[in-house]
Design a protein around this nucleic acid. Sequence first.
DNA 1: GCAATACGTTGCCGCTCACAACAAACCGCC
DNA 2: GGCGGTTTGTTGTGAGCGGCAACGTATTGC
Lengths: 393, 393
Amino acid sequence: MRVGPSQDEIRRQNLGALLRHVHVHGATSRAELTSTLGLNRSTIGALTADLAGAGLVSEGTPKETGRAGRPSLVVRPESARVYAYAYSIEVDRLRAARIGLGGEVLDRRGLDRPRGMDAGETAPLLAGVLKEMHQHVPPGSLCVGAGVAVCGMVRRADGLVRLGPTTGWVDEPIGAALAAALGTDVPVTVGNVADVAAFAEHARGVAADCDNVIYLYGDVGVGAGIIAGGRRLTGHGGYGGEVGHMVVVRDGAPCECGSRGCWETEIGEHALLRAAGRRDAHGRDALLAVFDAADRGDARAQTAVRQAGDWLGFGVANLVNIFNPEMVIFGGTMRDLYLAAAAQVRSRLNSMGLPACLEHVRLRTPTLGEDAALIGAAELAFERLLADPLDAG
Amino acid sequence: MRVGPSQDEIRRQNLGALLRHVHVHGATSRAELTSTLGLNRSTIGALTADLAGAGLVSEGTPKETGRAGRPSLVVRPESARVYAYAYSIEVDRLRAARIGLGGEVLDRRGLDRPRGMDAGETAPLLAGVLKEMHQHVPPGSLCVGAGVAVCGMVRRADGLVRLGPTTGWVDEPIGAALAAALGTDVPVTVGNVADVAAFAEHARGVAADCDNVIYLYGDVGVGAGIIAGGRRLTGHGGYGGEVGHMVVVRDGAPCECGSRGCWETEIGEHALLRAAGRRDAHGRDALLAVFDAADRGDARAQTAVRQAGDWLGFGVANLVNIFNPEMVIFGGTMRDLYLAAAAQVRSRLNSMGLPACLEHVRLRTPTLGEDAALIGAAELAFERLLADPLDAG
DNA sequence: GCAATACGTTGCCGCTCACAACAAACCGCC
DNA sequence: GGCGGTTTGTTGTGAGCGGCAACGTATTGC
């Protein structure tokens, strides 16, 4: 049974709200925080004092106010001192970063990932990168945790990767393995790429003011991160958003998942390359080559792109009818496909979508670009800090 | 920016939590409330005193405890004194009820609804029924509002019915019309039937312990009420859950919505009747006749039912992959179809659903039966009371 | 009739935030 | 350079909330 918070939970929530504000919006004057958060001056003062005492923010005098009156102290996130580790596990690459409070990328590494590498082999590799990065951490810094973005279905409870067609993983306990490798002082959170990217775009990207968002992410397959009513739609086990396996052609082409006619068999990498007559190619570069060819007038590539764009619009229309979102974001390869075939997408969407659902929906591309997964992964780790700044700090 | 609640909001939330508990679970001893809500004895005492003072609950000594110790006072909802009006606007019927706090149906009316009647004509009719029912209200009672369940897409902001294929309504302001007819002291809330029924089943039905639920409701069309993470999925405008217009056959049969191949063109009333060779029939009785015929061995009816059941499983599998729900509930005509073709539904679901998503999903029929819409409509009205018991009371 | 048990009631405490009064820092003007 | 006006930080006070412990009360079991 839901019950109201106790007093110290109020405090925690307010500390979190303040810290979240400077984390997302950057340095903010206390006066502005007062009006934004709707708390009293004295309360804001007490909260910032607590956060500053924990080393999470610092206060300073502003340069020039330009206005009359005593200048308000500016509350800054301790971007250099408070940080999270972020990982992105992709098809043939591993990316890692150290990201400061506020979202600044402090350090960044990347390494190739041989196909077929499982979680048990990956975790020590990631831990090694962490050790490398850790050598450059200034003394007195605070690590709030590590976040991992991975292509595949992630069990919310423990970060087990149930099925990652891209990586070939089945039931790989990357969360547990990484937690074991990093030790108990670095809590690990694992999330699906699309979910995590959606989270990032919702926190500090295009969807900053939208509470109902579908973030469509494509690499080899297609998944979605869904924000419904301002909160991430996880589903019961954490597997929500597997829109790539929505069947759009009954008894259609076989999909890797074992079903047939899944959406990603029509708009995924393989489908596009095959339709463009490049059956043996794979990877993002090959895909971009198809879009390039279509741009230059290659008839077969154009047909392939139009066909895929039409199917993209088809699936988006279904999702728009089901979710009535405010915004649909096209990320990963879906961004390229959308940009190459926007006319087809919109046309399908307009013919299939219910008028009421089409009313306010906006189609967008991500603003955080390649870093969305890493930033989102870091956000996962920061989430713990923001929920309880003083205890986690 | 989200900020923590102030002290009086804590009080409101706790009052609401207590009242919600006795509203949903019936009379409860103070001792039980203490352990369930996790609040102190003295706090529970103060809260019940406030609620009793507002006439929302009453306290009494229990019959027999059977255990040693001083018997705990029992907190009862004032079911007879505190009530809401509930309406359900259906194809050819209007149903109305007066429902007491706790969910008890105190009074119930029904009348025929001529097809083609619009909101402007319906509202006075509903207001008239309310006046009738009002005559039997004991003095000193408290009306907390009115809730309306209507087949169609409802704009959350003001209860405008955007599109109700069943009723033939387009942009009918039933919320505003009813509010005008009932006066300002009876706040009106309008919701989609499926949403409202899902709400009811989640509050006090099969889905009581499930936070991720899809309630599939069929009449002429098909819609869904979706509970995600314990909260109703409304979408941006309030139109979320229009799963009936998920296209399952590209360029398929034309649908009333203007699109083609919508799910409801395969599992809706018309589809089933047509496939069973009863093109001219309509209504629930005709549908039940088809299921009866299939039961008795009519080959054509059997084929129609199996076919529709297969499509039902198809769509459910898509939804299960997208939402990863804990439970799928089949209501309205979908209940009949599911019961008649459970084998087909499960077979399709198993072949198309992702293993991880199938893991914990349960298929169920509603427990609240025909009253789900009315009870859910009343819950909409009670929701305002539960959010702030003393101000609304 | 007594002890044991469980519960309601009461007074007190710590906590949080709002509020008001005061002090401090800036601007513009003379 | 001094002055008032303005905006803000700081401090002390107060109200409201829930937790807690002590005490009174109602029941069961012996």
